[in-house]
Design a protein around this nucleic acid. Sequence first.
DNA 1: ACAAAAATAGGAATAATTCCTATTTAGAAA
DNA 2: TTTCTAAATAGGAATTATTCCTATTTTTGT
Lengths: 127, 127
Amino acid sequence: MEKYSRQRQEILDFLIESYDHPTAEEIYAEVKKRGSTASKGTVYRNLNFLSEKGIIEKISMLNGADRYDYKKTPHNHVICSKCNKVFDFEYNFNLKRLRKSILEQTEIEDFSDYVIVQGICKKCLKN
Amino acid sequence: MEKYSRQRQEILDFLIESYDHPTAEEIYAEVKKRGSTASKGTVYRNLNFLSEKGIIEKISMLNGADRYDYKKTPHNHVICSKCNKVFDFEYNFNLKRLRKSILEQTEIEDFSDYVIVQGICKKCLKN
DNA sequence: ACAAAAATAGGAATAATTCCTATTTAGAAA
DNA sequence: TTTCTAAATAGGAATTATTCCTATTTTTGT
């Protein structure tokens, strides 16, 4: 039986209304600004908790801090490997075939129905 | 004109014959064991150099240190989010359609022709 | 061989995240 | 509605991962 503490709810609430994949540091700063008593340890603990529950998604970055995203609807991510900006995109994979390939070729049993692609954004390409 | 120093070559050589996506720390330990004089700074610098050149791939992890992979042939990765093990798999995406979706929906201009999927492996699923 | 550019070693510094301990809180049950 | 206890928290120390710094060395082109 989970205890949904005030702090956990504040963190989740902020993620629900966020659309820009904030880092733990940004989440910490924002909930503090809104009056939360949450410590940094609490923020990290809850982000891990919520992402293990599958309520939010932890997005690993090529460089820099991880980012977090509330799972509104299933969507994919493409990440600029220069500036670390994360973009959402929708795409219908042939999940049945993807599932088959992964099951046949790896030891992975259970997996996400979205993918991560690495790229470079327009702005960074100019420089 | 790049200078392929002895250290850079040692690091690359090790990655070429590796099939288990080692971390920077593991690469450092192994080349040292083989007699390289490379410092940790040199290992990191060269891993970044090689991955910017597209010769190797830096794989961002959900938790723990990044991993590196020599690009033998294009292949996708599926990562166990519990134990961090990385598996390769081959899969033919409809790259034309994927490209179109990403270009239409995001600011990303140029991107990899492989994807990363998150999952849980058999072993971790048992526990 | 010489100069210039690039790369290195080694360690300090920074960034990101986890861990620790004493205290507080949420929720169940009486 | 008080009490009990597992779960959660605050705050900071510790750890991990990575980058940065500077003096020295090496590589490559001429």
